[in-house]
Simulated scan of single mutants.
Amino acid sequence: MRIIGGRLGGIRLNPPTNLPVRPTTDLAKEALFNILQHKIDWADAQCLDLFCGTGNISFELASRGAAEVDAVDIHSKCLFYVKDMAKKYDFSAINTRKADVFKFVASCKKQYDFIFADPPYDVAQLPQLAHLVMDNNLLKEGGILVVEHPSTRKMQEHATLVETRKYGYSSFSIYEL
């Protein structure tokens, strides 16, 4: 796992192997950020990384200069790793929060410019995730939501869906408000 671009582009991260995660591949992450590079000004962006796991996306956002990155996960070991790496690489923009993501989404009062969600592929609510984010008004006007999901699993239709990109077994559904 490596940081693709920004201040620490090229840095390789080696998370513990005992974390309950399936990190976004470097190839898929690079393709995603190529799509996003002209859509979002990262320097001013308020970002949310749901199911942050190893912090792969959080670190990428912080390296690219995001103003703030809220990293949410239910697993303490994941959050300890994210906190340690954020401190090591001086990513002061990253804030970690231990929470059930679905409860967090339902109670969050903050809005974001960019939201990335990479839930475990077997989570029952995965197809409704875009609806949950939009219904709870987490995305700012002009904001972008990206949900990573297995290519074999369909997301529920939503009016803000712009496109779905497939990268092998994984796909990114991209929503714009």
Score class of each variant (00 low, 15 high):
105 V>R: 12
154 K>Q: 13
143 G>F: 01
141 E>T: 10
28 A>V: 12
71 A>L: 10
121 Y>C: 08
37 Q>N: 13
117 A>K: 00
84 D>E: 10
27 L>I: 14
37 Q>S: 13
95 N>Y: 13
112 Y>I: 01
123 V>M: 07
20 P>W: 02
73 D>G: 13
11 I>M: 12
131 H>V: 01
47 C>T: 04
159 A>G: 02
39 K>T: 04
74 I>S: 14
121 Y>E: 04
101 V>L: 08
149 H>E: 10
89 Y>E: 01
59 F>L: 00
30 E>M: 03
140 K>E: 06
118 D>M: 05
78 C>N: 15
118 D>K: 13
8 L>F: 02
33 F>G: 09
79 L>Q: 05
142 G>Q: 05
16 P>S: 13
100 D>M: 14
116 F>L: 10
174 I>G: 10
29 K>C: 01
77 K>G: 14
106 A>P: 12
29 K>L: 01
84 D>C: 05
117 A>T: 04
111 Q>Y: 08
93 A>N: 03
69 V>L: 01
62 A>D: 00
154 K>L: 06
133 V>E: 11
53 G>Q: 12
11 I>W: 00
39 K>Q: 06
67 A>C: 12
154 K>W: 05
52 C>D: 05
14 N>A: 15
14 N>Y: 15
64 R>M: 03
169 Y>G: 13
170 S>Y: 09
67 A>W: 11
73 D>W: 07
42 W>T: 09
96 T>D: 10
164 T>L: 05
33 F>S: 10
31 A>G: 06
78 C>D: 13
98 K>T: 09
135 D>C: 13
